[in-house]
Design a protein around this nucleic acid. Structure first.
Length: 447
RNA sequence: GGAAAGGUGGCCGAGUGGCUUAAGGCGCACGCUUGGAAAGCGUGUGUAGGUCACACUACCGCGGGUUCGAAUCCCGCCCUUUCCGCCA
């Protein structure tokens, strides 16, 4: 769920494929076969019709253009004759039908475009060869590990209890104000959130070379199509009534779409941007999961990293972006591991994704705190983001886009609260954050 | 929300139905000139589809319409600027 908005829908779809095949989800071979069958079905139902449609489309465009060429020639001659006060009735005869025929052909092209687009927009990106193959998250590959989970001499509390005792986290009042899956931060809790945002932005802008962006928190449907959330994952989004506006599920959407429809200069690449935004997700289909605490909220803060680069650079840039995100956890000295997602766990738009997972003492497991992906040219094609070399004769080509959380602030907040608690319920502040908290070394109950 | 004026190539800017194939200028690139530069002169200078390459087609904010023919006329929408109202 820090995973992009579509992830839950993707998982639901995987579950549906398994259910429809009627196989035991623990039977690996049967599940794999079910996915292969589904893949064949997708090829037959979606890819094959595209070939025929493409052919029809080309023919219709060719016919229409031939007629247009004729029309232009005739119209020009009409203009010439009228200027000379010569009659042109013989030329005008039949041209009305040509115009109608052109309109008809254009309508046909439009219909084919619509049909093709509807199909194409629902086809996910092709996983990179570097993505491990597997049918779900159990096939994910651990690639990095940092730190050692602390051995508490007492039973560690979770952040809900710690936050309530310290008076810094309130779910009940958030429920009153809005509803479930919302929270209120108070006092040092609110300040810790703000400190984390500033800390992350400062590290990325000052140490990692990103340019800071503060985008709109609402975007139109076109932007969401560009990054791949629409049309397939509308149910994951909050839509504003009476507007073609949606609350952003991640800063990825406004920041990646900054350059939609534009041609960037090759010398400006790699372009690295970072943005703090709140993120809004409906979490449809995740009922009953992570209902306690800050893990899964309808609104959470995130600092996002986004890169636009040349195709040949995108995989080295992904490694850099990942290490930039990991650096935040290292500076905060929070134990984590990084996994490469398998093909079965990969989101709709990504070619390769790393998840960074932070250690949570209360759950005694690693939980996702960042997701870093290379989309190759998938988003660039949808959003038409291109670049061009200095040679004026060179044709524009699609950039590669990447993004990753750097990090999910809410989950970082709770990771700090849980990992840095002491037996008295106080929270130790990591040294790098102290300047952002007025030099405080601990969060303790207010007198 | 109300009123008015606008939206044309990388930029400025002309263009009220047909030699517009978007004038002219700036900028940029190349060439001539020069000891070198500037100035001057000349040539070129958007995107996409299409083609071996041409031809050809589309694009003057977006979408419709009228017409043989639309940057130009009509309708709707979006955005910008200014004024008023409201507001932070």
């Amino acid at each position: 769920m820090i995973k992009r908005g579509e992830a839950s829908a993707q998982q639901a779809e995987n579950a549906k494929i398994i259910a429809e095949a009627g196989v035991d989800s623990n039977d690996r071979a049967a599940v794999l076969q079910a996915f292969l069958n589904n893949f064949s079905r997708v090829v037959i139902e979606k890819i094959q019709p595209l070939e025929k449609l493409d052919e029809q489309r080309r023919q219709a465009i060719f016919d229409a253009e031939s007629l247009k060429a004729e029309r232009n020639t005739v119209s020009k001659e009409v203009g010439r004759r009228k200027a000379n006060k010569e009659p042109a009735d013989d030329l005008l005869a039949g041209m009305k039908e040509v115009a109608d025929k052109i309109k008809e052909l254009e309508k046909k092209v439009e219909n084919i475009d619509q049909t093709m687009n509807d199909l194409l927009m629902t086809i996910p990106n092709v996983p990179s060869p570097a993505t491990p193959v597997g049918h779900d998250e159990t096939a994910n590959l651990e690639v990095h590990k940092y730190g050692t989970p602390k051995d508490f001499a007492f039973a560690p509390k979770d952040h809900v209890d710690l936050g309530a005792n310290l008076g810094i986290l309130d779910f009940e009042r958030a429920g009153k104000l809005t509803g479930t899956r919302f929270s209120v931060l108070m006092g040092q809790g609110a300040r810790l959130e703000r400190a984390l945002i500033n800390f992350m932005l400062d590290v990325h802008t000052q140490k990692h070379g990103y340019k800071e962006v503060l985008p709109p928190f609402m975007v139109n449907s076109n932007s969401l199509r560009g990054t791949g959330q629409l049309p397939k994952f509308e149910q994951d989004l909050f839509k504003l009534q009476g507007f073609d506006y949606y609350l952003i599920p991640t800063a990825e959407v406004p920041v990646t779409n900054l350059y939609a429809g534009e041609i960037l200069k090759e010398s400006d690449l790699t372009l690295s941007l970072t943005a703090y935004t709140p993120c809004f997700r409906s979490e449809a289909g995740s009922y009953g999961r992570d209902t306690r605490g800050l893990i899964r909220q309808h609104q959470f803060d995130k600092v996002e990293l986004v890169k636009f680069c040349k195709p040949e650079d995108s995989y080295s840039e992904l490694e850099k972006l990942l290490s930039d995100a990991e650096q935040i956890l290292k500076l905060l000295d929070l134990p984590f591991r990084t996994v490469a997602l398998s093909t079965g766990d990969l989101g709709f738009s990504a070619a390769k994704t790393y998840d960074i997972e932070v250690w949570l003492p209360s759950q005694k497991c690693f939980r996702e705190i960042s997701s870093c992906s290379n989309f190759e040219d998938f988003q660039a094609r949808r959003a038409q983001i291109r670049f061009k070399g200095n040679d004026p004769k060179s044709k524009p080509s699609l950039v590669h886009t990447l993004n990753g959380s750097g990090l999910a602030v809410g989950r970082t907040w709770l990771a700090i609260v849980e990992n840095y608690q002491d037996e008295n319920g106080r929270i130790f502040i990591p040294e790098v954050l102290r300047p952002y908290l007025g030099g405080a070394t601990h969060i303790e109950p207010e007198k």
